[in-house]
Each structure stands twice: as C-alpha cells, then as structure tokens.
Design a protein around this nucleic acid. Structure first.
Lengths: 345, 345
DNA sequence: ACGGGATATTGGAACGGTCCAACTCCCGGT
DNA sequence: ACCGGGAGTTGGACCGTTCCAATATCCCGT
C-alpha cells in the first residue's frame, strides 16, 4: 500500500493529515491553527506552522467548501472583455468583494457563447456564493434558473427583470438626454443619433428623442441604426453624412458608444468634414478611448468604477438577505466635454 | 432531524442522493447515468434524467473533484484586462482548451496586486489542473512554487525562465528588427525608439539597436524610455520632438506598443508635425487600436490569437507529460503597414 | 489527595460525489 | 437441476476538510 515514499509520478499534494503527522499532532489541531483559533498552545502552533511551511501545504478548497457549503468565490460573467468599459466595472467590483474576503472568477460570455458553453451552469456546479453578470448576456433564461439558487446581480444593463435579481444600470435615458441637450445648447438644430440594439440601445434612443422633442426639434432628429463597433459607427456615419442629402445634413451626431463614435469620427474625416467645426460628435461611456488625446472625444460619463462598487455592495446585501425584493439602481451619468463638440458654423 | 421538508431559508441544493430517492434507484446508478455509461437500462435512465430535471440537480464540482483529483479547470492569470491584446490571446487559448473539455477561470493580476491577493495561491487551493500566465506577472516566485505542483505555461513574455515552465512568446527582437528595417527601407536615417521595461522592453530595444547597427546607423539611433501607456508615449514623444533639438530631429519613431504609439501620434499632432509626412510612426502588437481608421497605425503584428492557441496546446502537452523539459516557443511576427509610415521628406 | 473548572487536544461523523467489488437476475448450455 | 457468464444494479470505502462532542491535561482552592 505504501503510497507516499515511492512517488515516481504520482506525488500527491500534502494533506492536512500529512501536516499533522509531521508536526506530531492531530489533524483537528492543524485545522484550528489554520483558522487562527486562539485556543491553541504556542508550542504546537509553531510546530504546525513549521510543518505547513516545510511541506508547502495548501488547503484543498474543494474539500473545504464541501463541508462549509461556502466557496468565498463569486462568479462574474462579462459580456465582452475587449470593451474597456468592462475592465473598469470589474475594478470597482473587485475592490468591494475583496474587502469582504470574496474572490472573483471571471468568464467571458462571448467566448462561452461561441463554444456553446454555459458559464451560468459551470458556476452553479462550482457552487459559487454569488453571481454577477456585467453587460448584456447571451442567455437570460439560464440566469433565471441560477437566481433560484444563488444571489445574482446584473450590472450595466436593464434587460432581464427577474424576480430576485438586483439590477444596477446607468440611467441611459438620462445620459442620452444630457448629451443631446448639450448639442442643442451649443446651437445645433439637426442632430443624428447612431442607435444601438437591446434595452440599452432603446433607452439611449428614447432619451435622444425626448430631448429633441422637448426642444421642439422633432423634425431635426435623425436616427440611424448601427452595430456597436468601430466599423458600425463608420458605416452609419457614411450613410448619415455621405449620401445625396435628402434635406440638410445633421451638424451633430450622438453615437451609441465611444467605439461607434470613433468610427464616425473617421468617416467625417474621410468625407472632408472637420470635427468639431463642421460636425460635432459625442460618444457614450467615457472609456479610455475617449481620453486618447488624438481622439479627445466628448462623451457621456457612466462612472463604471462606481457601478462596479455598487454591484458589489448589492451582491453582499443579497447574500445577507436572499429573499428580499429585487432592487433596481440607476447611476446618474454626467458629461465629459472634450474636443469633438462645438457650436455649429 | 427532518431537514428537507421544513426548509424555511436553509433550502439546500439537491444532491445525488435526492435524485436517487426520487427516481427510485441507488446513488451509484445516478452517477452512472450522469457519466453516460452504456450499461444502464433505458427505463432507469429515463427515470433518473426526469428526476434530475424536476429537481434542477447540478453535480457539485467540489465533491466531484475531491475524489477525481481533477477539476477540468485551468486558471488563467492575465496581466491587465484593459489591454486589448490579452483579450485576443484569451480567445485563442479558450478555443483550444474548450475543445479538450477544460474550462477557464480568469484572474486579473493587476487587481490582485492592488489588493495584495495572490491568485497563484488561490488557484493552487482550487486545485486547477493547470495554470497559464499571460503577460508580465507580478510575482514570479509564486509561479515557481506553483510549477512544482502544476503544469504551468507562460505566454507573452520571456521573463521567468523556470525549470518546468513552458514559455510561448513573441519573437520581440525580430519584430523590432522588422519594424526598424521597414523604416530604414523607407529612407529614414534618424530613428527613435520609445522603450518599455521588463524583458519584452529590453528585447524590442535590442532588436531596434541591432537593425540600426546593421544598417550602419548607430549614430542615428535614439532611445527614449517611456511608460507603456498613452500618456507615457505622449511624454516620450514630446521629449524626443519638442525640446530644443540637440542635433536633427528623428524622422521616424518605433514605439514600444500601440498605446504608446497613439500617445506619440497626439504629441506629433500638437507639435504641428504631419504624420506620416513629417514623422513616420510604427507601433507594436497590432491591437484593434491600430486598426481604428482614425488612427490607422502601422504596427508589428504579434498574432495574439495564434499565441493563445499555442499556449493551450502547450499546456495540454505538459498535462500529459508533466516531467518533460521546459519548452520555449517563439512566434514569428510580421508587419502590418497602415497609414503612419512613409518615406521622409 | 481530590473535585472542579478552564484550557488544549482529539476521534469521528459529516459534506457529495466516484469507483470498485459484490450481488442479483436471467438466459443458454450441458 | 446445475453451472457459467454477462448485463444491470448496489453498498460501501474513500477523497480532504470542518465541526462537535468527548477526552486529556493542568492549575487551583480546600
């Protein structure tokens, strides 16, 4: 049976029993030392710590969580890691969770979708203590079943309104109103919106239209749908500005997000329009793209770090009170005016 | 003792025993069904599947991995999720791992560093089947101890040369040579390099200097250190181009990476230099930043997706043969010439 | 010398799976 | 009637921890 000494390739990691044996105590005592119990004599504590160190012992999280029925781990499903906005949300989220002894495991929903994997299920099997979904997610149904077992918080989108699922989202409508009002205030009368999809896209569009209507500019409002990518923004802008104008061209564009706005910026440049003299341009999310000097994009600031922190606190709340009613928080946006907006000629 | 019916708040997730009871079979049989064993009668199989469905049963990954001593999970530590280059590496990595039934758990090393958390240790406790580190990492020592227990692969950097750790990296020196040779070929004679830190920074610098030396242009080579951020690139470029010129200004700049190059682009613009007429500029990594039309940056293409796939295959190899010697792969870079490089005036 | 606590330490039963040896059928061959 | 064998099914040991009840040890007052 001798399994330890021979260890050619099968070398198992040390267990709590191995540590106990080496330190000449029982495994229970080792467990107490690990948990920092005060009722252990100094002599034994030292012996145990020394043994742990010598063996390079690391507690097995699986065994631990099996009996404790807690993993101290929350799963985070992110829509698309490529979008810098998410990185900032994660940052805020992490700071709150870490302060409460929780670690974060991330999964890129886009990757899972492409390979037909269901991360919700994976996290459920791992028995994470909570789940945070950031951004529009592939499969709202899966989230619903997860919510039956786990604290779940959705951040960055309004979409799945589920019974026990809290939602932290930007006040997208308000942000769009702010951006539009800013353009109107500068004197623009004919303004286009490059619209995105999903609930976030709908809200931003609604805010745009409401602001235009309130200013009595219904006739000056143009909505052009586009993919939320640089390419999509470029194409939408070409359609808006390039073709044979059926009426006067818009003098300002409010784009669904920063990436989109950057595409529109390129289109304007290619069409010989000077930004901001011939065309004002404002994006949304205030990502680091907008802050790049060479782009220097005006944008709606969605305080992503704050959203992450709120989502974290919200999750902690729900972990403490799993049955409370779903909460819905809206984060107030502000404007970050840079170099791409100005009065029209 | 009756623990199941009363379930006010303590509602435990269903176990394999619950499923067995409901289906009227033993837990062993349920286990067989879950694993898709062919030696189960159709009638019982149906009964078990029905019970699983009704209860919403999900196997407990902790219990499973405890006995199987495999988690089918690999940990991925990423240097900085904000850098779009990493997202693409992850993409390639994921495709290979998923094809072999492994799931990926990610951690942002930067986040961990800030909060003093050691993800290597966390992954060790979770008993992941393997570890991939992408990019320069905070704590090489931790990696070394991990490598004693786990298959470990490092991607995207050359730095920690550890006994049983495979490394997949760009041939950074070669890439830098290519970029520099491209500039020389265009006719530039005085060329600056904005240098980064760490082993990657050193290699790129070495490649730059070697290419200049081979062309007999040692005197035309200028090296300016800079942070690998937009701000860093901007400042370095200002130092290179703006101050009172002690000799002729460089007519071309090879930047440590794309973000850096974008900063330099802004600096050139502010200094009234036209790119590429007055100044050629080339970056490194060919991220989506370089592909943004409004930037349209020439760059060294480091085929990040390919690197991810290689790292994945390499990890699978090492999982199969843990004791084999450390492998070192260099991925050959190529050039992606866009709008920021041209012959000097 | 001895009972009574407090303090330190220990054995063993969970936790929820997998796996293996053993057992029960049932059928066909002798 | 009996045996052999394969297909289907089952109980029980085990994985590495935590936690609780039980035990061992010590110090103190009487």
């Amino acid at each position: 049976m001798e399994r330890s000494k021979e260890g050619a390739g099968g070398e198992r990691p040390p267990t709590i029993r191995g540590v106990a044996e080496r330190a000449g105590v029982s495994k229970s005592l080792v467990s107490l030392v690990i948990q920092g119990s005060p009722r252990v004599s100094d002599a034994k504590r030292q012996a145990v710590l020394a043994a742990i160190d010598e063996l390079g012992y690391r507690p097995n999280a699986a065994a631990r969580s099996l009996v404790a029925r807690r993993t101290h781990t929350v799963g985070v499903i992110v829509n698309d890691l490529r979008n810098p906005w998410f990185a900032e949300v994660l940052d805020g989220l992490n700071s709150v969770l870490h302060a409460h002894g929780l670690r974060m495991l991330m999964a890129d929903g886009r990757l899972g979708q492409r390979t037909g994997e269901d991360f919700t299920r994976a996290f459920l099997e791992l028995r994470v203590d909570g789940l945070v979904a950031v951004g529009t997610l592939p499969d709202p149904d899966a989230l619903a079943t997860a919510a039956a077992r786990l604290p779940v918080v959705v951040a960055g989108t309004h979409e799945p309104r589920l019974p026990r699922v809290d939602t932290i989202a930007n006040d997208d409508e308000r942000g769009a109103r702010l951006a539009t009002a800013h353009l109107i205030g500068l004197g623009h009368r004919r303004i286009a919106h490059i619209a995105g999809r999903g609930s976030v896209g709908a809200l931003r569009r609604r805010g745009f239209e409401a602001a235009m209507a309130e200013a009595g500019l219904v006739d000056g409002a143009v909505v052009e749908p586009g993919e939320p990518t640089e390419e999509g923004g470029y194409r939408a802008a070409v359609r808006l500005l390039g073709g044979p104008a059926d009426g006067p061209r818009p003098t300002a564009v409010f784009a669904f997000n920063d990436i989109c706005a950057v595409g529109a910026l390129s289109a304007a440049q290619e069409l010989g329009l000077d930004v901001p003299r011939d065309l004002s341009l404002i994006g949304c999310d205030n990502t680091y793209l907008a802050r790049i000097r060479h782009l220097w994009l005006s944008s709606v600031n969605n305080t992503s770090g704050d959203m992450g922190r709120r989502a974290g606190r919200c999750l902690l709340e729900r972990m403490a009170h799993p049955e409370r009613a779903a909460e819905r928080q809206l984060v107030a946006p502000s404007l970050e005016i840079r170099g791409t907006t100005a009065p029209p000629r």
